[in-house]
Computed example of a mutant assay.
Amino acid sequence: MTAPVRTHLARAESDPAGLPDDAYAELLTADGDDLEALCALADHLRREAVGDQLTFVANRNLDTPVAADPGRADPLVDEAWALGATEVCVQGPLPADAPTTAALDLVARITGRAPLHLHAFRPAEVADAAARLALSPREFLTAARDAGLGSVPGTAARILDDGIRAWLTGGTDIPAARWTELVTTAHEVGLRSTATMVYGHVETPAEQVAHLRALATIQDRTGGFTEFIPMPILPEALPTARRVADRGCGDPGVERQQSRIARTRSVRSSTRETRALYAVARLLLHGRIDHVQAAWPKLGAELTVAVLRGGADDAGGLLLDGALDPAAGAEAGRRLTLGDVERLAAALGRTPRQRTTVYGDASPERQAVLRELAAPR
């Protein structure tokens, strides 16, 4: 083990969340024996924080245009309930021609059909729904909460750095400060949220640490985050040189952006980077955010196991597709079964636990429905 990493890990054993940012940035570059020692410490902290459980939630994802259409959404919500779900997650912008009250109508209709937890409206979608109703975001979130909204996705955080966000989306993302304001407002009106990061493109270790630090600051203020979910960027989400040339991306020049693209091709997220990031997140967020979710739809089976052995504790959602319209959600075709989770837990030496969105225990009735449907026929 190298001397700097040995020094950082020795200090982290007694104060995992108390290292200076440059130490966390150096730990993000760990490899070989250094990486194994970092992941071992993160796994120890995971056990200290949440024990030897592997949690998961039975949920269904719906794209917002689907959820806003009663003719499509109502039978899908009924089916999700029949399949044992406790949560419906809705993400994506409302259709441009949707009625002014579409967001609140969606909330009331879904939660009125079944006692499901509705997890909906990313920060940009909160701002859009509020503007349609001529309300402030706080007024909209309060009205949505009163109509039955349970929590909001803390997605589209990407990296909370305006230059990186502009590069990734051509300037279409809301500013990092606006994302922070909207998530904080949701917490202040009593709505919990996830916290996320999309990594593995052009951000540096120091920028990853700054993102984690921004999330920690929000959590210190509100306590509203339920879990942290790091997600590697997918190839189709990377900007192309033509997109950069067309949009400019808000940076000083196209040449600089094309240089970033060339760099991206050589620094795409690796197994090493992913393991180090999950482990450092466990350290920096220790005592703040107890749960770190393995983003299995984007990691694949082998890397999911690796991060669960190095700081992560939650398997996320089963993503129940159902038979009526399996393509109704953004991650259609990717799902876990109860058997998958049980086998994964056994391999890790942990006990599977079906949770709610906010990490309580799923009701015995919901657990029984899921187990009955998973039983051999």
Rank of each mutant, 00 (worst) to 15 (best):
M197Y: 05
L348W: 12
A96S: 13
R165Q: 06
A315N: 06
E13W: 08
R122N: 13
A237V: 03
T55V: 02
G154C: 03
H291Y: 03
A330D: 11
A120F: 12
T169R: 10
Q293T: 13
P123Q: 00
T222I: 05
M231H: 01
F225C: 08
A281N: 10
I110E: 08
W296H: 10
S270C: 08
G253A: 15
P364L: 11
L76N: 03
W81F: 14
P99H: 05
P65S: 03
G360R: 09
R275D: 06
A102T: 14
L54I: 06
I159L: 06
Y359I: 07
V305E: 11
L118N: 07
L344W: 11
H211C: 09
P115I: 11
A315H: 13
L106F: 01
P95K: 10
A129R: 00
V5P: 05
G32Q: 06
E273K: 08
A281P: 06
G150T: 11
E203A: 09
G190E: 07
A301V: 13
E125Y: 04
A82I: 08
T101N: 15
R122E: 15
H187C: 12
S136R: 09
A73Q: 01
Q367G: 05
T64N: 00
Q53S: 07
E87P: 04
A127N: 05
L370E: 07
G316Q: 07
T180D: 03
E48G: 04
A130V: 03
A166H: 12
H44R: 15
Q257V: 07
E273Y: 06
A332Y: 10
E273I: 08
A214Y: 11
E188A: 13
S136L: 07
R47T: 15
G223M: 12
D220R: 13
V152D: 05
A332W: 14
D246G: 08
L62E: 03
D21Q: 14
E203Y: 06
V369D: 02
P235Q: 10
A368C: 00
A40G: 08
V254K: 00
V292P: 00
R371C: 03
L338W: 06
D78W: 04
V107I: 04
A332E: 10
G171I: 02
L182S: 05
E36R: 14
G300T: 11
E236M: 13
V5L: 02
A10D: 14
A306M: 03
T274L: 06
H187K: 04
V66H: 01
V244L: 11
T304K: 09
Q208R: 14
G349H: 08
E207P: 12
R256K: 01
V107L: 02
M231Q: 10
A156Q: 14
T222P: 00
G339A: 14
P16N: 02
D146C: 08
L38H: 02
P230A: 12
T155S: 15
A73D: 07
P95C: 05
L299Q: 11
A102H: 13
G71R: 12
